[in-house]
Write a protein that binds this DNA or RNA. Structure first.
Length: 424
RNA sequence: GUGGCCGUAGCUCAACGGUAGAGUCCCAGAUUGUGAUUCUGGUUGUUGUGGGUUCGAAUCCCAUCGGCCACCCCA
């Protein structure tokens, strides 16, 4: 036998037992998006590498070392598996002039790819859903997205997520703060660790959310970005906070909250849990008013978020809220002369009426068929033997209730079955 | 990319230098047309892979692949 083939590291099979939960989860997300007026968009998993380099930022970790990038050997194009979907969504919006007639609300879901070392809640192929409100400038959409998330957590029954909020202002405001921050960090350089020193010039904001207590202590009097925000930025932030207050959504302002991707401005937010170990961020987003221009579109304000499906499903499981998979309504056992054809047609009649009926396959003794019927979780076993075929009937046995089994007429099958289902 | 722990039956695990085992699951029978309990019997392995040490390796050593967790970073 050839060497065993296995899935690529960090890319997981979602097996049927678990996939049932995924389907239920996705259905809840779809329903939520629909209720808020967001329309689905499906973009390719593969894009030109340049899209992500320009959108996400050349000096981010994602672009520098985490992208699955390769050359298409057939035509020499540089391609990348999407590490996130906002860039693709905006690219599609520009390419198809989606905001020509005014702003649009969009949502997506699907796999993303980042070449990181796998650990709890972090995989090389992982799944996100997200929403993007394109063409809206005011704080109302920032708030709407956050309110929508809160509603979704409520539907899912997740209690252990908290909201952190910040405003990172405009590019100009960040630039002025950056100068002051670097000046401050240079005075503390002996207290900084290697990571902090490295980032001091490349991404000084990142130094502020270091997990190293020594670095935290040394930077506790660092210049705060919030103090550099002008009137317009502060008004926008106040608008968001006021709406969240009105909606009764609790949050804490974290002045050190920054986002990993370059395209954000003004509002940034994260939904965080303490229940998933080191990967506590379950959903994150913010405003990205500059992104359209950055990748060649007309200036268009926009705001969005992305949520990690694996992380949310893990939380959902912890909370014990994942619904049990649907069992079939009946398991159909057959044995003897003419029973197979008879059973097949009976099953088809029930399925046409909307019922989930599993017909036993692969032979086996009557006893083993009964065992399969039990294991299927179905409330009812339907039995077809030579007796039933001759009589034009089926035997109906309740598997989960102590009720006598009964014969039902084949020509009144659907009605008889419906009546029996009510007794389960 | 860095570090720690770990890879034995489909699953959960034992054996820690001397014959690879248990539970569970699965299959069959007890019960020839009636499941989930019980009893009886049965199948299941290149001990992740490749080298090395040894009379002898699941066990010790090295490499490699994979898993888990953390760092970095992120959803």
């Amino acid at each position: 036998m050839a060497a065993t083939l296995q899935a690529i590291r960090g890319m997981n099979d979602v097996l049927p037992d678990e996939a049932a939960g995924w389907l239920a989860f996705e259905e809840i997300v779809r329903d939520c998006m629909h209720r808020y007026g967001y329309r689905n968009i499906r973009t390719p998993l593969l894009e030109q590498t340049g899209l992500f380099r320009r959108a996400i930022g050349e000096v981010t970790d994602i672009v520098e070392k985490e992208m699955y990038t390769f050359t298409d050997e057939l035509n020499g194009e540089q391609l990348t598996l999407r590490p996130e979907a906002t860039a693709s969504t905006v690219r599609a919006a520009i390419e198809h002039s989606l905001t020509y007639n005014g702003p649009v609300r969009l949502w997506y879901a699907g796999p993303m790819y980042r070449h990181e070392r796998p650990q709890k809640g972090r995989y090389r192929q992982f799944h996100q859903f997200g929403a993007e409100a394109l063409g809206f400038a005011g704080p109302d959409l920032d708030a709407e997205l956050i309110v929508m998330c809160a509603a979704l957590w409520k539907t899912l029954g997740l209690g252990d997520v908290r909201l952190e909020l910040n405003s990172i202002g405009s590019q100009e405001e960040r630039a002025r703060h950056r100068v002051e921050l670097i000046r401050f960090l240079e005075t503390k350089v002996e207290a900084l660790d290697g990571d902090a020193k490295r980032r001091m010039h490349s991404n000084p904001l990142r130094v502020l959310d270091s997990k190293n207590p020594v670095v935290q202590e040394a930077t506790k009097d660092a210049p705060v970005l919030m103090d550099f925000l002008g009137e317009a930025s502060l008004a926008h932030f106040d608008g968001v906070k006021k709406l969240l207050g009105a909606a009764g959504i609790g949050f804490s302002v974290n002045p050190r909250l920054v986002r990993g991707l370059d395209y954000y401005n003004l509002t940034v937010f994260e939904w965080i849990t303490d229940k998933l170990g080191a990967q506590g961020t379950v959903c994150a987003g913010g405003r990205y008013d500059g992104l359209f221009e950055q990748i060649g579109g007309k200036p268009t304000p926009a705001v969005g978020f992305a949520a990690g499906i694996e992380r949310l499903i893990a939380l959902w499981q912890d909370a014990g809220r994942v619904p049990a998979p649907h069992a079939p309504q009946a398991y159909l056992i057959h044995q003897g002369e003419g029973a197979l054809e008879y059973a097949l047609l009976a099953a088809e009649a029930l399925r046409a009426a909307g019922h989930a009926v599993v017909q036993h396959g692969g032979g086996g003794s009557f006893k083993s068929q009964m065992k399969k019927a039990d294991a299927s979780g179905a409330p009812i076993a339907l039995i077809v033997g030579e007796d039933e075929v001759r009589a034009g009937e089926l035997t109906l046995k309740y598997l989960r209730r102590d009720r006598p089994q009964a014969r039902i007429r084949r020509d009144g099958l659907v009605a008889g079955f419906n009546a029996a289902l009510k007794e389960t």
